[in-house]
């Protein structure tokens, strides 16, 4: 990519480069929740509006090693380098920062993530909370005084909500938010105008992708009910190490690439274990995400490390 698109003053020339860059990965735009193809005229129109650019990194699994697989440290470093080049306003990390919830793995991840040179907002994955309910994770990455760990913040008129759905998985392995968090979310959203763009990020998918492997959140329905009245809701998840999208009214869902290893398509094979691929194919299955919000339109561009 030759030029970074800033959040303001997007010219036609830049818009075309933007489009080309998007073409390297997946490019989706959503206006009021409805996906539409990008048109050059649309970009010119968008150039008149203020915008926000941020990044998503997910499932870095620092500590993961398997056979000839390159280290998760190396692939995260590469992802971080690419993210830094995008110069996003900030970055969110949607969990499984570590592989084994080990203090050293969190420290290594934090050190590598420093390379994005931007503030990073984390939520934990189930690999970050093994054995201690996320104590070490929240000590290092927590917001708002550590556990229970969910939080929200506002920037440029957009409301961001970080949820924690990995602290108590259901017996079938699904994520779980719990009544306390759901009540907090309801309060957090209650007094916001329906035109406020909302971005929700959490580790496990907020919709049912493949429940047999625990790829979903058991009590997502009340959270979605609280979100439904908003005109633009973007839900960003990790966990399944592949990009899957879904649109439901004004709510769009996106799972993200991992920076460490791919996982099989839903239900393909005996389990959700790391997908074994030839070394030269691996980086085409790892990646990062860039998001641009211009007016009420969210553009989501996934690009691989290949």
């Amino acid at each position: 990519m030759s030029k970074v698109i800033g959040s303001k003053g997007l010219g036609r020339r830049q818009a075309m480069q933007h489009l080309l860059w998007g073409g390297a990965g997946l490019l989706w735009t959503f206006a009021g929740g409805v996906p539409r193809a990008l048109r050059l005229g649309g970009e010119a129109e968008a150039a008149e509006m203020r915008g926000l650019t941020f990044g998503q990194i997910s499932d870095s699994h620092i500590g993961f090693k398997a056979g000839a697989h390159p280290s998760a440290e190396d692939t995260l470093s590469e992802a971080v380098g690419r993210m830094a080049a995008l110069k996003p306003g900030f970055v969110i990390h949607t969990g499984d920062v570590s592989h084994l919830s080990a203090a050293g793995q969190f420290a290594t991840a934090a050190e590598i993530m420093r390379g994005v040179k931007r503030e990073v907002f984390y939520v934990p994955g189930e690999h970050d909370t093994i054995g201690d309910d996320g104590k070490l994770f929240f000590e290092r990455f927590g917001r708002g005084g550590g556990s229970p760990g969910w939080y929200s913040f506002d920037t440029q008129g957009v409301h961001f909500v970080g949820l924690v759905n990995v602290l108590k998985l259901t017996q079938t392995g699904l994520g779980w938010l719990g009544p306390e968090q759901l009540q907090w979310l309801d309060q957090d959203l209650r007094h916001r105008g329906a035109s406020t763009p909302i971005v929700v990020f959490a580790h496990m998918p907020m919709w049912s992708i493949y429940p047999q492997w625990g790829w979903g959140t058991d009590d997502a329905a009340p959270a979605l009910a609280a979100l439904r009245r908003f005109g633009s809701v973007t839900i960003l998840n990790g966990h399944i190490h592949q990009v899957i999208q879904k649109v439901e009214g004004t709510v769009t869902y996106h799972t993200a690439y991992s920076t460490a290893f791919p996982q099989p398509a839903p239900g393909v094979g005996p389990g959700p274990g790391p997908l074994k691929v030839p070394a030269d194919k691996l980086k085409a299955l790892l990646g990062i995400r860039r998001l641009d919000l211009v007016a009420d339109r969210m553009t989501v561009a996934d690009t691989t490390l290949a």
Partner: peptide, 8 residues
């Protein structure tokens, strides 16, 4: 018993 990471 179960696996706390994969409770299924």
């Amino acid at each position: 018993y179960t696996c706390s990471v994969h409770p299924y």
